[in-house]
Design a protein around this nucleic acid. Structure first.
Length: 597
DNA sequence: GCCGTTTTCGGCCCGACTGTTTTCAGTCG
């Protein structure tokens, strides 16, 4: 059983317990363990084999360990099952509705025995909800809106979608005038998370004689943004709107004096903030979105920048991508924070497609676009023949493509065009092209595009075979997942990483926003096992080359440093870092040196 | 249900906003 499946059962149990009226601590303990599992790099199934190891996890005691054992043994958790029977399996849907939380869901159940979105919607339409204490006419309207949204969208967006909306809206807000100091996206977008639920924008206002007047003017300007579908809320210093695409945006207006505290608070993650506040308390401070202040006397210690708040908490500056409470606070305390890889460290892009298979641009066009991004080299890696839908190349066409790339090199200056391939890993782990052809390529990227539902053992063997093939240099999008659309392949990742390390095969962090594969926790695992990483865009058009930034952000979330990523190396060093080809002719100079000695 | 160099019982992060109230509970992030 996968960690997220176990986490889901525990999280749902927490929600059901809260509806059931359990005391706050009891359901919090389930939530905490669910959060832990979501970020745990090891498989909980493996951890649980050793009961002492399981109980050593923070928040897992005698009782919780027993529950986890039960879930792993039976695939279900009896308390969750019992509660779902007591209510209805659909009752959890109601919590998805804005303005409905566990207390109100419990009330609705008590009064109407209702447990479906449709049921609540009907009651709201008939004006019956207002009979319940705590509900009124306005609540009915809100629930009707929320039910509508629930039906229309799952509610999460790919990072590039949110990023593009954020850039447009930030530029618009800046037009409001001189009162604005800066507009900064916070939240999960700033942390580089693979999907974004809603957008948090912080608008910092210059100090002035009448800040409130400025704030009101800016808020009015924001509410006139043309792409607003619906206004959700509008308070003294906050506006929430729904954009046409369905993305919710929360804009907060604040004075520049407390910008650091606000940025820290609204960047999150929630778990990171909780831990920081706990640490603040222990040190005699209290931390909120306005400032770090002393518990006694309320004296402000820091608020203008994140740096000074971390400093007062005796921590190094923690990059937003690390703020998930998965060890970054301890690392910051010890001075062990990684020096994360940056976009400008990247010297080349190692996976992209041209019109030879399913890309939209020619070799030259890709080369020219990459040169403009300042790269020193790229690998052109079209598909191999097994991917017929993508017009994959057979041996003959691959050899022709190599010639075309060599010829294009004559016409494109200031960037090295490496002849590559994205060769398919067949069902049994063999590669889709003959060794004689693979031997002539500069870069061999291998990946899975078929039989994605193989069981754990088969898929493990298949990938192991591919890694053991002496021509494989990079495994692309290693888990095959599609963000929001398809789950990752199931295989023994630790064995795969160990094999990759042993054979010098690099694992890709695919920067394409629909993939982001390897993902953050797997990258961290790979790094810990000493596996080389490459970050590539998998571009199918020249304009996709800019997706690199999402790959870099994902790598940063995985604690990846420049030295972990081989395409941060200049060309010659990069080529030397790739797995050496079998029987590769030694350079003449090396041969002479050998002869002399 | 977990946890503890103040605690083995009593607390579990904190504040704004909303919509309901007429002083506040619930939701949200």
């Amino acid at each position: 059983m996968e960690n997220r499946e176990v986490a889901k059962l525990l999280r749902e149990t927490a929600q059901l317990l809260e509806i059931d009226g359990a005391i706050v601590g009891r359901y919090r303990s389930y939530e905490k363990v669910a959060e832990l599992l979501d970020s745990l790099p090891e498989r909980i199934e493996d951890v649980a084999k050793d009961d002492a190891k399981l109980k050593a996890l923070p928040g897992v005691g005698e009782g919780m360990a027993e529950h986890i054992h039960e879930i792993l043994r039976t695939g279900e958790y009896s308390l969750r099952h019992k509660l779902l029977k007591k209510y209805q399996p659909t009752i959890l849907d109601l919590l998805q509705l804005q303005s409905l939380g566990p207390k109100k869901v419990a009330l609705l159940w008590k009064k109407f025995k209702v447990a479906t979105v449709e049921g609540v919607e009907k009651l709201a339409r008939e004006g019956k909800l207002r009979e319940v204490e705590g509900f009124g006419e306005k609540s009915e309207q809100n629930i009707l809106k929320a039910a509508d949204l629930f039906k229309r969208s799952a509610g999460r967006f790919l990072i590039n979608v949110a990023d593009e909306e954020a850039q447009k809206l930030c530029a618009y807000i800046l037009d409001a005038g001189e009162a604005i100091e800066s507009v900064t996206p916070a939240g999960s977008l700033r942390r580089g998370k693979e999907t974004i639920g809603d957008l948090d924008l912080l608008v910092s206002m210059h100090p002035s004689r009448d800040v409130q007047k400025d704030v009101d003017a800016v808020a009015e300007h924001i509410l006139r943004y043309p792409a607003i579908q619906q206004k959700l809320a509008h308070g003294e210093n906050k506006a929430s709107v729904l954009l046409d695409g369905g993305l919710q945006v929360d804009v907060r207006l604040l004075e520049s004096a407390s910008f650091g505290a606000a940025l820290l608070y609204f960047t999150g993650s929630k778990e990171h903030n909780v831990a920081l506040r706990g640490r603040a308390n222990e040190m005699g401070w209290t931390l909120n979105e306005y400032a770090l202040t002393s518990l006694k006397g309320g004296k402000v210690a820091a608020r203008a920048t994140e740096q000074e708040i971390y400093e007062r908490l005796k921590l190094g500056y923690i990059e937003p991508e690390l703020r998930e409470n998965t060890g970054e606070i301890e690392a910051a305390e010890m001075g062990w924070l990684p020096k994360l890889v940056k976009l400008e460290d990247i010297c080349g892009d190692l996976q992209m497609h041209t019109t030879a298979s399913d890309g939209n641009n020619s070799i030259e066009e890709m080369g020219e676009a990459a040169r403009k991004l300042g790269y020193e080299y790229i690998a052109l890696t079209d598909h191999s023949k097994a991917v017929t839908v993508a017009n994959g190349m057979d041996e003959k066409r691959t050899l022709e493509q190599i010639k075309k790339i060599r010829a294009a090199q004559q016409r494109v200056e200031d960037i090295r065009l490496l002849a590559g391939i994205e060769v398919d890993i067949l069902k049994d782990g063999r590669l889709d092209l003959d060794n004689e052809v693979l031997a002539q390529l500069d870069v061999v990227v291998a990946s899975v595009h078929s039989y994605m539902n193989q069981d754990r053992a088969e898929m493990t063997d298949r990938l192991l075979a591919a890694i053991e093939n002496p021509y494989t240099q990079i495994i692309a999008h290693p888990t095959g997942r599609l963000v929001l659309r398809r789950d990752a392949f199931v295989y023994d990742m630790e064995r795969i990483f160990d094999a990759a390390k042993k054979h010098g095969v690099a694992m890709e962090c695919n920067a394409y926003p629909d993939r982001l594969d390897l993902k953050d926790v797997h990258l961290r695992m790979a790094k810990e096992r000493g596996v080389k990483i490459v970050i590539s865009t998998d571009s199918h058009a020249a304009k996709n080359l800019t997706f690199m930034k999402y790959g870099v952000e994902t790598a940063r979330r995985g604690w990846i440093e420049k030295s972990d990523v081989i395409n941060t190396l200049p060309l010659e060093q990069f080529l030397a870092a790739l797995r050496p080809k079998p029987h590769a002719a030694q350079p003449k100079a090396a041969k002479r040196r050998q002869a002399r000695s």
